Structures are given as structure tokens and as C-alpha cells.
Computed example of a mutant assay.
Amino acid sequence: MFNSITKRSFRFNLAVVVGLFLFIGVLFFLLLGVITKHGDTLIVPDVYRKNVQEATQILEKAGFNVDVRDSIYIDSLAALAVWEQTPAKGSEVKVGRTIYLTVNKVVPPMVKMPELVGLTFRSAEMTLHSLRLNVGDTIYKPDFATNTVLQQLLNGKSVKPGRDIPEGSNITLVLSSGTGSMENPAPNLIGLTFAEAKEALSASNLNLGTVIVDPGVTDTANAYVIKQDPMRKNNLNELQMVRAGESIDLWLFPTKPTPATDSTTPPAQPE
């Protein structure tokens, strides 16, 4: 065979080689569509909010490969549910294309609780959203600083700034509704314990102002109120009026003032 090839002219052999390559090239391009499944396309099904296992089964059954690419935490979405798919639902893609999924985390990440007290409602809302926290209930309480945050609560309890809480938590905001329009006589708190005085203030929709504690006090809750400002009556023995949301300052002493005072008599105060 080698001798027969060598006996032929160089041009003939070159023409045979070129023809052979042309034949292989034409055959390759004819078979390329079959090899690459050119023209075989599928529509990507919708697996949004489906569990990742169910979504994988649906996609693989439809002729796609599946890869979980990323995870995110959405508090309103079930754990391991699909949040995003790429290519998107309804896209026309080739058979065997890989569909990348982003799924919801099982355990929410933790974030630091911010300090919201003193902020306006709008500022507090923006701060919470920036940390992927939600505004829960809003409770209004009389106070002079209208529409500012007085307290921040989680599950009904006060939550301190800097505490780690789950992302997506609902934070209840206690907001100031401003002072009331109606005036009422200042309550008489003289002779009450500090704990009793705070309850009386709360019942009257009044706030606790400055608290001055005598050095001899060892138990603040059971210390006695010996002075308040404003008093129930002024020096002219006239009732002093306060509005809901205003504050009353208290002076605390370790023993109950004597003689015991009523709502009309100013107490005897220690020097």
C-alpha cells in the first residue's frame, strides 16, 4: 500500500488529503446539531418558594441540572425554600442547562439590637430595616417629645442595645403621643414608696422625671418620696395642674416622712 501511494504524484496525494479533511469537516458540521442538541430547548419551570428537594426533583425531571449557589434569610419564607432561580422561570434554554438556586437559610443570622430610644419613628424604622429587622406593634404613650421612641420591646420585654437578636425579629416601638390637652391636679406622691410612686405616675399617664436619692438609701424601690416637683399644691395652697405626658421629679429618703402627709399638706422635709 505504501508503494502504491509513493508511486502516485504529490499533487494527487495532496488532493486526497484535502478531500479527506473536507469530508471530515462536512460530516462534523452535519453531526454538530445532534452532538450539541442544537434546537432542543426547554422552558424553565417555576420553583419559587418550593422546598429545595422538591425543586431539584422538578428541574431534574424536566431535563436540567441543579446547583444550589447561594443562601439568604427571609423571615416570611419557609426554611430551605427557593428564593431565586437563574435562569428565571419561563426562560427558554438548552436541554441539560444548569439551574442555579438561592435558598432560604434554616437558622436566621444574628444582628445587634440598635439604640432606638430618642429617635423619631421614621428614623427608627429606617434603622431597623437596614439591619433586616421589622417594626412590630406601635404603642403610643403620652410624653412631651411627640412621635419619638420611648421604649423598644422584643416579645413584650425591653431589649437593650447591643444584644444579639435573630434577623427578621419584630420590634415593638413605644412612641410618644405628645402631652395631653386636658389638665389635671398633680397627684400627691409624698409618703409613697418609690415603687408605689411609679405605679401612681403610670396610672396618671405621667412620666418619672429626675430622681434624687438620699445617700442613706440602700433599697431604692422601698425608699420613700419626701418631695416632688411639681407639688400637688403650691405655696398659695392652690392645686398645681399637669398634663398627661409631663414629668414629675422625685426626692427619695430611707424613712417615711413625718408627720404623714395628705394630698393638701406639704411634708416636713429633712435639711
Results as ranks from 00 to 15, higher is better:
residue 1 M to T: 10
residue 2 F to T: 10
residue 5 I to P: 02
residue 7 K to L: 08
residue 7 K to F: 04
residue 8 R to F: 09
residue 9 S to V: 05
residue 11 R to Q: 11
residue 12 F to G: 10
residue 13 N to I: 10
residue 14 L to E: 00
residue 15 A to L: 13
residue 19 G to C: 08
residue 19 G to S: 15
residue 19 G to N: 07
residue 21 F to K: 00
residue 21 F to A: 10
residue 24 I to Y: 12
residue 25 G to D: 11
residue 38 H to I: 11
residue 39 G to L: 07
residue 41 T to P: 03
residue 41 T to L: 12
residue 44 V to H: 11
residue 45 P to Q: 06
residue 47 V to L: 04
residue 59 L to R: 07
residue 60 E to M: 13
residue 61 K to N: 14
residue 63 G to A: 10
residue 63 G to Q: 06
residue 65 N to D: 13
residue 79 A to E: 13
residue 97 R to P: 05
residue 100 Y to G: 01
residue 103 V to E: 02
residue 111 V to S: 08
residue 112 K to N: 13
residue 114 P to G: 11
residue 120 T to S: 15
residue 122 R to E: 15
residue 134 N to K: 15
residue 134 N to F: 08
residue 138 T to I: 12
residue 140 Y to V: 02
residue 141 K to L: 11
residue 142 P to E: 06
residue 144 F to N: 02
residue 145 A to V: 04
residue 145 A to M: 12
residue 145 A to S: 12
residue 146 T to L: 14
residue 147 N to H: 11
residue 147 N to F: 08
residue 152 Q to L: 05
residue 154 L to R: 09
residue 155 N to S: 10
residue 155 N to K: 13
residue 159 V to F: 06
residue 163 R to S: 14
residue 172 T to C: 01
residue 172 T to P: 01
residue 174 V to F: 03
residue 174 V to M: 08
residue 176 S to H: 04
residue 181 S to F: 07
residue 186 A to N: 08
residue 187 P to D: 09
residue 188 N to R: 00
residue 192 L to V: 00
residue 198 K to S: 03
residue 203 A to D: 12
residue 204 S to Q: 09
residue 205 N to K: 11
residue 208 L to N: 02
residue 211 V to P: 03
residue 215 P to I: 02
residue 217 V to R: 01
residue 219 D to A: 09
residue 227 K to G: 11
residue 228 Q to S: 03
residue 231 M to H: 09
residue 232 R to S: 13
residue 233 K to A: 04
residue 235 N to Q: 11
residue 237 N to M: 08
residue 244 A to S: 14
residue 244 A to K: 15
residue 245 G to V: 09
residue 245 G to L: 06
residue 247 S to H: 03
residue 249 D to A: 15
residue 249 D to W: 02
residue 256 K to I: 04
residue 257 P to N: 06
residue 257 P to D: 05
residue 264 T to C: 00
residue 265 T to G: 06
